[in-house]
Design a protein around this nucleic acid. Sequence first.
DNA 1: GCTGTTAAATGTACGTTGTACGCCTACGAG
DNA 2: CTCGTAGGCGTACAACGTACATTTAACAGC
Lengths: 206, 206
Amino acid sequence: MPRPRSLQPDRLAAAAVAIIDRDGLAGLTMRAAAQELGLSTMALYRYVADRDELELLVCEWVLRDLDATVPDGPIWTENLKILSQRVRASLAAHQRVVPLLIANRQRCHAVLRWTESALAVLTAAGFDDADRVVALRGLVAYLNGALLQESLGALAGPGTLVMAALPAADFPLLRDTARRAGTVSADDEFDGGLSIVLRGLAAMVS
Amino acid sequence: MPRPRSLQPDRLAAAAVAIIDRDGLAGLTMRAAAQELGLSTMALYRYVADRDELELLVCEWVLRDLDATVPDGPIWTENLKILSQRVRASLAAHQRVVPLLIANRQRCHAVLRWTESALAVLTAAGFDDADRVVALRGLVAYLNGALLQESLGALAGPGTLVMAALPAADFPLLRDTARRAGTVSADDEFDGGLSIVLRGLAAMVS
DNA sequence: GCTGTTAAATGTACGTTGTACGCCTACGAG
DNA sequence: CTCGTAGGCGTACAACGTACATTTAACAGC
C-alpha cells in the first residue's frame, strides 16, 4: 500500500564498499554513503538502523560470493588451505574492509558458514573437543592477523621502508630483513605463513 | 626562565591507559585525557602534537617493561615462545590497547626492539633471506590475530555464547565447538595456537 | 621586591561526525 | 478521488579533534 522502496540492500552495501575502496575506512560516513546513493543523509536510516548495521551489510556484501562448501580433496590440510585462500581472494579487491570484518566476525553470516566448513574439515581430520577449539582459533588468529597486516600496508609498502631505514647499529637484523621483505610477494607471504600453521596443525594430530 | 612543565610524558600515557582500561578505546578522547590529568583540553596539546601522538605514547607506556632481551635457552622454539608470552603478559592488564598497538606496530620503539630479538632467535635457528621474512611475518600475524581476538572478547565471552545459540540444523559443528570453547582457558588457547605456529616453524627449518 | 620575557595553560570557536525528531510527499488500496 | 502508510528530507544537537587568540605563572636580571 505505501510507497515502495527505491533501493535494495545490495545497492547500499555496494555503495559503501565503493567509498571504502576509494577513500578508505575513514571515508565511510553516513553522509558520504547517502550522497553516493543520491539520497539525503537521513533517508539512509530508512534502510539501516545505524552505522553498525551498514558496516555489517558491507561485510556480507564483500563475502557474498565466498564459496563456503567443504572442499572434498583427500588431504585435509590442503582443504583448509583452499578455504583460507578463498577468504583472501574474496577480500583481495576490498582489503580496507578487513578491520570491519574482524569486528563483525561473529555476526556476519558468511563468516559463520565459512567457519562451519572449516570445522567440518578439522573434524574429519580427527580434531575434537578442546583440540578442535584450539585448532580453529589458531587458524583464524593467523588469518585475521595476516589479512589485517596486508590491509594495513603491503609487505613491500612504506612501513617496511621505514624499518629498512632504521639505524644499523640498533636494529641490524630488522633493517636487513625489511630490505629483503620487498622481494617477497604478498601471495608468497600469505601462503608461506599459512603453510607454517597447517604444518603445525598436522603435527598436532599425528 | 619560562614556566616549567607540570607533567611528564609518562603521566600522560598512564592517564590515557587508565581511561582505556576503564571506558574502552572509544572513551579515550582528548577531552577525557585532559580531564583525567586535571588540565584544560587544549593544554594537552602542549605535550602531544595530536591524538595520534598520544596513542603512540600509550603504546610505548604499555610495553615499557617488556623484556626484549633474547632468551638464551638451548631450544629456539622455546625462546620464541618466551618472547611471545612476554608480549601477551605485558598486554594482559591492558587488553583494550591491542588495536592501537597493531596500528602503531611500525612506529613503536618497544615493538621494534622486540622484533629485533625475535629475528635474532630466528637467525640463530637457521632462517635467512625470504624464509626469515615469512617466518617472522607468520609469527607476528598469529600474535596480532590472537591478541586481537582476546582483546575483542574472551573465548568464553558473549560472542561465543551467541554462536553456541546458533540453530543446530545450520551450524552443528560451530554450535558444538562454541559450547566446548567455554572450557578452554585463555592461556591454553593462546599457548595452544602458539605451539601450532612454532611446530610449523620447526618443520620449516628441518 | 619589582619587572619583563617566555612558555604553559586556557577559552572560544569551527568543521565534521552520528543520529533524534518532525514535517512533507508519493504511492497504491479502497 | 481520497486517504493511510511509509519513504524521504531538513533541521538540530551533542561530542569529537583541533586551530587560534588570549591569559597566566614562573624565573632572570635589576
